[in-house]
Amino acid sequence: MSGPQIILWVIALAVLALCMRRGMPQARRAVVETNRGFWRILPMFCVALPMAAFLSELVPADIATEWLGDDSGLSGIMIASLAGGIMPGGPFVTFPLVITFSKAGAGVAQMTALLTAWSVYALHRILTWEYPVLGWRFVAMRLASSFFLPVLAGLIMQALLPFFAINLAAP
């Protein structure tokens, strides 16, 4: 297990211990919910991971360099923001795809914009959750106050990159 994984397990067990202190029923419910969540998410994994792997076989190396590479600058950041906004599915889809894009030459700032746009715009989530639950006025209000964030995040990352050595393709 890697460092972050160990940290995660320690935090999870600590919070579970807090639950136990509050009462055994709570702790038991936490474990039952964990089990249920795992089986609910498993089918997603079974299709998302092969999808990302196939796509990374199909995407020719360096094809992303021109559009999304480190030198693509603002236009690359904007393209990545658009792509991130329409990307469907949860993190089990997006993060493997980001690895795929990075192997194909995409830049770190561009991938930051893509991840931010995937979180901020999240077209699939608007259609399936935000619009039905909160209404289109809320969607409009939220987008009006956050539409510029992905490009901003990409630009900040680009400005900071010279000070950090980050390689997404080989973690």
Binding site: P4, L8, C19, F38
Partner: peptide, 19 residues
């Protein structure tokens, strides 16, 4: 690679929800 983190993350989420 992901499964250990996934189980820990789900456990943390469920435990936090109780609190």
């Amino acid at each position: 690679f992901i499964v250990p983190s996934l189980v820990a993350g789900l456990l943390l989420a469920a435990a936090l929800r109780q609190l």
